[in-house]
Amino acid sequence: MKNHLRELRAERGWSQAVLAEKLEVSRQTVNAIETQKYDPSLPLAFKIAEVFNMKIEEVFTPNHRK
């Protein structure tokens, strides 16, 4: 699954640590999601979308979709 986490975070000027704190996860988890080494669970994906005030499909896209 692809995501735009890094771009969205950069737009808001948040560090990984700041985003991790908002999501109540570790900085390692934010980094792993950004580098697409780890796909978050559905509850965490919804929480990420909520933090960015966006729809989940605006943050995450399946690999087969461009």
Partner: peptide, 8 residues
């Protein structure tokens, strides 16, 4: 108490 990646 850990997050989902750490639990994984």
């Amino acid at each position: 108490g850990f997050d989902e990646l750490q639990q994984r």
